Amino acid sequence: QTVVIGDTTYHLNNPEAAQQIAKELAKKYGLKVVISGNTIKLK
């Protein structure tokens, strides 16, 4: 699972954790979560 935040890319072996982290950050910073395949992007 790949999480992309701005110009930073994180690789996590746990998809659920990756999605949870993405949701928390999106909520905290008012970002939009875009999931395509096994890549999660925060914009």
Rank of each mutant, 00 (worst) to 15 (best):
K28I: 08
N38V: 07
K32V: 15
L12N: 02
I5H: 03
Y29F: 09
K41M: 14
K43L: 15
A22R: 02
E16P: 01
G37P: 02
L12K: 03
L31K: 03
H11A: 05
P15D: 06
A22N: 01
T8Q: 10
K43T: 14
T39C: 14
S36R: 06
V33F: 06
Y10L: 14
P15C: 13
I35Q: 05
T9I: 13
K32A: 11
T39P: 00
A22V: 07
L31S: 02
I35V: 09
A17D: 11
V4D: 02
K27E: 12
T39L: 08
K28A: 04
E16Y: 09
K28E: 04
L12H: 05
V4E: 05
I21H: 02
L12W: 12
I21L: 15
N13K: 10
K27C: 12
V4H: 08
G37L: 04
V34K: 02
P15Q: 07
L42A: 01
A22G: 02
Q20I: 09
S36T: 11
I35Y: 06
L25K: 00
T9Q: 08
H11R: 04
Q1S: 14
H11M: 10
V33Y: 04
Y10V: 12
E16T: 09
G37N: 07
G37W: 03
V4K: 09
N13G: 09
N13S: 13
T9H: 08
I40R: 00
Q19W: 14
T8F: 15
Y10W: 08
G6K: 04
Y29I: 07
K32T: 14
T8A: 08
A26H: 04
T2D: 08
Y29V: 06
K43I: 15
K23H: 11
V33Q: 01
E16C: 10
N13W: 11
V4N: 04
Y29S: 04
K32R: 06
K23G: 06
K41T: 14
K32S: 13
H11S: 06
I40M: 01
N38H: 05
V3W: 05
D7P: 06
L42K: 00
I40D: 00
D7F: 14
I21D: 00
A26P: 00
T8E: 08
K41E: 12
L42G: 00
Y29P: 05
K32E: 12
T2F: 13
Q20E: 08
Q19Y: 14
V33D: 00
L12T: 07
D7N: 14
N38Q: 06
N14D: 12
K27I: 09
V4M: 09
A26M: 07
D7E: 12
V3E: 01
S36I: 13
V3D: 01
Y29L: 08
L42P: 00
Y29A: 06
T39A: 04
K27F: 07
Y10T: 02
V3T: 02
Q20P: 00
V4Q: 11
I40A: 00
G37H: 04
A18N: 01
E16K: 10
N14M: 10
G30E: 03
N38C: 08
D7V: 10
A17Q: 12
A18E: 01
A26R: 05
K27N: 07
T8H: 14
K27V: 07
P15N: 07
Y29T: 06
I40L: 03
T8W: 15
Y10I: 15
K41R: 13
K23S: 11
I35M: 06
D7I: 13
Y29H: 09
V34Y: 08
L31R: 01
K27P: 05
Q20H: 09
G6F: 13
Q19A: 10
G30Q: 05
K43R: 10
L42Q: 01
T9S: 08
T9R: 12
I5F: 08
Q1M: 15
I35E: 03
K23A: 11
T8N: 09
K41S: 12
I21A: 05
T8L: 13
Q19G: 05
A22H: 00
V34A: 03
P15Y: 12
N13L: 13
N38I: 07
L31Y: 08
N38K: 08
S36K: 10
K27M: 09
L31Q: 03
Y29M: 05
A26T: 02
N13R: 06
K32N: 09
N13V: 07
A17I: 13
L42T: 01
I35T: 04
V4F: 03
V34R: 01
Y10D: 03
N38D: 12
I5D: 02
K43M: 15
K28C: 12
G6P: 03
N14W: 12
I21S: 01
